[in-house]
Computed example of a mutant assay.
Amino acid sequence: MKCIVGLGNPGKKYEKTRHNIGFMVMDELARQNHWSISQMKFRGLYTTEHVNGEKVLLLKPQTYMNLSGESLRAFMDYFDIDDEDILVVFDDLDLPPGKIRLRKKGGHGGHNGIRNIIDQLGTKEFKRLRMGIGRPEAPVTVVDYVLGDFPKSEAGAVSDSIEQAVKACEAWIEKSFDEVMNEFNAK
């Protein structure tokens, strides 16, 4: 079983914001595979799919970013998902737009959605796919920055990173996470 979780905020207001790049990856993954993330339960939108005998669960928590772990915890409990079978896709200020980075574990790095997941799961031992969004320049605050839309000048890099993230998610369904990290972190 593989569970891929994209983080973001629900609603039209946040749809194209930097903080929602996790949702963007999930939507593109679903679109390319003709899946529909439309079932609502566990305070999230989800779907259950099967790929070459592997059960694949996709989740977009609808709790707003800072409470993402509450939706994921309920989802994991219901489907009996182990920590090692989770991949969380989220925005990262420390990577430039267009860059992705996969990690097996780590801290929250100031990301409140990841902080809540760590609190709810009681562990830092879950896989992550970090999506670069860059850092704001003064006087823009981090909150305003992550809740702002990507500028047109970054559209190509963001689109490329979403495509790479989709490929990485698809690769993880078929391969070990170490293989996926070796392939995609090298780019």
Score class of each variant (00 low, 15 high):
Lys127Pro: 04
Gly113Ser: 05
Tyr78Arg: 13
Val146Gly: 04
Val143Ser: 14
Lys41Arg: 15
Val146Arg: 05
Met1Ile: 14
Gly11Phe: 09
Lys99Phe: 11
Gly53Ser: 01
Gly6Gln: 09
Lys2Ile: 09
Leu29Gln: 07
Asn112Val: 05
Leu93Glu: 11
Ile4Arg: 12
Glu163Ile: 03
Ile37Tyr: 12
Leu93Ala: 13
Gly8Asn: 03
Asn9Thr: 09
Ile114Ser: 06
Phe79Gly: 08
Glu137His: 10
Gln62Met: 15
Arg31Leu: 14
Lys13Pro: 04
Ile162Val: 15
Lys41His: 14
Ile21Asn: 01
Met181Arg: 10
Glu28Ile: 01
Arg18Asp: 00
Ala157Leu: 13
Lys99Met: 14
Glu174Lys: 12
Gly44Phe: 08
Ile37Arg: 07
Glu70Ser: 07
Glu183Ile: 11
Ile21Lys: 06
Asp178Ser: 13
Val51Pro: 00
Gly22Asn: 04
Thr17Pro: 05
Cys3Met: 10
Asp94Met: 01
Ile162Lys: 01
Thr123Pro: 04
Asp94Ala: 10
Phe23Ser: 04
Glu15Leu: 15
Ala186Leu: 05
Phe75Ser: 08
Val51His: 00
Val89Gly: 03
Met24His: 11
Ser153Val: 01
Gly53Cys: 02
Gly98Cys: 03
Asp27Asn: 15
Glu70Gly: 04
Ala165Asp: 02
Leu129Arg: 09
Asn33Glu: 15
Glu28Cys: 03
Gly122Asp: 07
Asp144Arg: 08
Ala138Cys: 00
Gly22Leu: 07
Thr63Glu: 07
Gly22Thr: 08
His108Arg: 03
Glu174Ile: 12
Ser36Val: 07
Ser159Tyr: 02
Pro136Ala: 09
Asp94Leu: 03
Val51Cys: 05
Phe90Ser: 06
His34Cys: 01
Ala157Trp: 00
Pro139Asn: 07
